[in-house]
């Protein structure tokens, strides 16, 4: 199977009749969880990721007293793949959460200053990534879901030491849209948006988050290596994909 797949990919014949730099079908739905302040359900092919956003009143970080906090975590649920095991976060889920976190933070996706309540009180925004079905490319699906959910997040009201979470009108202030593109290297071939099967035979992975103007986060993964030309190529493609992905988010958050 693996050798067959490698052969297909190296002869440019990817499964599902997909070009090497094409995404699978992407579906985005927002507001899928009513108990959360914001949420989104994103599927890329058979990969499906749910993000829920909650806001709590918290203390600010000492070095940023006038800004809110962003806390991102990721769960690779055992129900999402026979290869995922229950237990505390493993290095893979920590990496996933931290890369999504870096992209959101670097792009200043959320207006952190708008989360200030009063002295020593700010909103903490919890971005919880739940992988529901794994078929590769969790990075792009998770960032799409997080970005979409944040754009549709309604800010609770803090009044008389109480948090009111019902009948909210004010949306969280989102300043910038950031998306990521993830590539797999299989042998010497680069492909965008790897499936689970493709990820099982990839030697290296490369994720670039950009906001249309700037690279906002990069994460290279696995034992394989990249040549500089390959990196240039992936960065180029990443920027080309920005508008397509941004449009999907915008359509889902109208």
């Amino acid at each position: 199977m693996n050798d067959y797949l490698k052969e297909l990919i190296s002869s440019g014949l990817r499964s599902h009749d997909r070009g090497n730099f094409d995404y699978r079908e992407i579906k985005i739905k927002s507001d899928v969880i009513k108990t959360a302040e914001g949420s989104a359900d994103v599927s890329i092919g058979d990969t499906r990721v749910l993000v829920g956003i909650k806001l709590d009143v918290d203390e600010p970080m000492p070095d940023k007293p006038d800004e809110g906090n962003l806390i991102t975590s990721a769960e690779l649920l055992p129900l999402a793949s026979p290869d995922f095991e229950p237990g505390p976060p493993n290095p893979e889920s920590i990496e996933l959460a931290r890369v999504v976190d870096r992209a959101l933070r670097s792009a200043e996706a959320i207006d952190m200053k708008s989360l200030f309540i009063e002295e020593n009180k700010v909103w903490s925004v919890f971005v919880d990534i739940y992988v529901l079905n794994y078929d590769g490319n969790l990075f792009d699906a998770s960032l799409l879901a997080a970005m979409t959910a944040l754009m549709k997040t309604k800010k609770p009201i803090y009044k008389d030491n109480k948090v009111i979470r019902e009948n909210l009108n004010e949306y969280l202030k989102v300043n910038n849209i950031v998306v990521s593109t993830t590539f797999a290297k299989i042998g010497d071939i680069l492909i965008l948006d790897p499936t689970g099967e493709e990820e099982s035979i990839m030697n290296a992975r490369y994720t670039i988050a950009n906001d249309g103007n700037n690279i906002r986060a990069i994460q290279k993964g696995l034992y394989g290596s990249f040549k500089e030309e390959e990196i240039d190529n992936m960065v180029e493609i990443s920027f080309k994909k920005y508008n397509e992905l941004k449009l999907l988010i915008e359509n889902a958050t109208k």
């Binding site: 870096r102 992209a103 933070r105 670097s106 792009a107 490369y206 906001d211 700037n214 690279i215 906002r216 986060a217 990069i218 994460q219 290279k220 290596s225 990249f226 040549k227 500089e228 990196i231």
Partner: peptide, 11 residues
Amino acid sequence: NEILLMQMDGG
């Protein structure tokens, strides 16, 4: 000149 690790944040 094989790139083995690359991470980035900021802009």
